[in-house]
């Protein structure tokens, strides 16, 4: 069984559209949407949610006003500027301390140092994850609560579930749609996978971002291949990407032409390869043949 993850560094290069097509082209697999703060894959997979599970991302502190004596010790201890103070002169109300839940990282330092034990420390539901059925196989996806942290932890939960499903149902492939960037959720999405497919496009920005991502996959020693999307927007830069790949000894599995058919498919809530014939659909089919060989 192989875990194939599609990432890009830069957002909007076409990861999800590509994964949707790979979901249609590949067999015997489970899909995972690891872009947990902006998950879109389900929009083109015609999913039906079978199971919804709360995600406990961590803990958070909150001040119990009845017990608080406004001593302000917590304020001195917090390194995240999460303790807020309102003196009674402001807005005419009573003096009070409270915790900005978006700034609180759940370290419990204030909880331990409060002389009145006036700070509660409870688990926080910071999102939910779903198990869906789709015509292409099971889909594991999630929705991180708005303005929540711990996206990396949620990604790990999703991957564990997908692995479990793959074992139970004897599936051959775990197809992962990754998040943009190179930080926490990306690291959680790619560590321990069998193959990273980087979707880039011929722009200075996307190339810059791809190079940082390639450093990351090299750092973790994961086999990596490249796909150039919208390759005809700047043929010269597309050649430069190929040159770069040659130097790094990385395969370029495909070049997908810029094609309005990609947006049309999305509007029809379908993958590109299932929305009639188009240059992009043909390019993606050719790409999958290359990737299939690379991961088998």
């Amino acid at each position: 069984m192989t875990e194939l993850v599609v990432v890009s560094g830069k957002g909007g290069t076409g990861k999800t559209s590509l994964v949707g097509s790979l979901a249609a082209l590949s067999e015997n697999k489970v899909m995972v949407d690891c872009d947990v703060d902006a998950a879109d894959l389900h929009l083109i997979l015609n999913n039906r949610v079978q199971k919804t599970i709360e995600f406990i991302g961590g803990k958070g502190a909150s001040i119990v006003n009845e017990k608080c004596t406004n001593c302000g010790i917590c304020l001195d201890y917090c390194r995240f500027d999460a303790i807020k103070h309102e003196s009674h002169t402001e807005n005419g109300g009573e003096e009070r301390y409270w915790i900005d839940k978006h700034a609180c990282e759940g370290c419990a330092v204030c909880v331990r140092n409060c002389p009145e034990q006036a700070i509660d420390f409870n688990e926080i539901v910071s999102g939910e994850w779903y198990l869906s059925d789709t015509p292409y196989g099971p889909l594991v996806h999630a929705r991180l609560g708005i303005a929540q942290a711990n996206s990396g932890k949620l990604v790990s939960v999703l991957r564990k579930q997908a692995l479990l499903l793959a074992e139970q149902r004897e599936l051959d492939l775990i197809l992962i749609d990754g998040p943009p960037g190179i930080g926490c959720p990306v690291i959680a999405s790619i560590t321990g996978t069998g193959y990273v497919l980087v979707v880039t496009e011929p722009s200075m920005s996307a190339m810059h971002d791809m190079e940082r991502l390639l450093q990351l996959t090299a750092h973790f020693g994961i086999p990596t291949g490249i796909c150039i999307n919208k390759c005809d927007i700047n043929p010269e830069l597309s050649s430069q990407i190929e040159e770069k790949a040659r130097k790094l000894n990385l395969p370029v599995h495909g070049r997908i032409r810029h094609d309005e058919a990609v947006t049309r498919a999305q509007l029809n809530q379908k993958s590109v390869v299932e929305n009639g014939d188009s240059p992009a659909a043909r390019d993606i089919r050719a790409l999958w043949e290359g990737v299939k060989n690379a991961i088998s």
Binding site: A38, H102, I146, A147, A149, S151, G181
Partner: peptide, 13 residues
């Protein structure tokens, strides 16, 4: 940055 989680909050607050 893109998204809706902690790195974005830090940037826009």
């Amino acid at each position: 940055p893109p998204g809706t989680s902690c790195p974005v909050i830090e940037a826009i607050s």
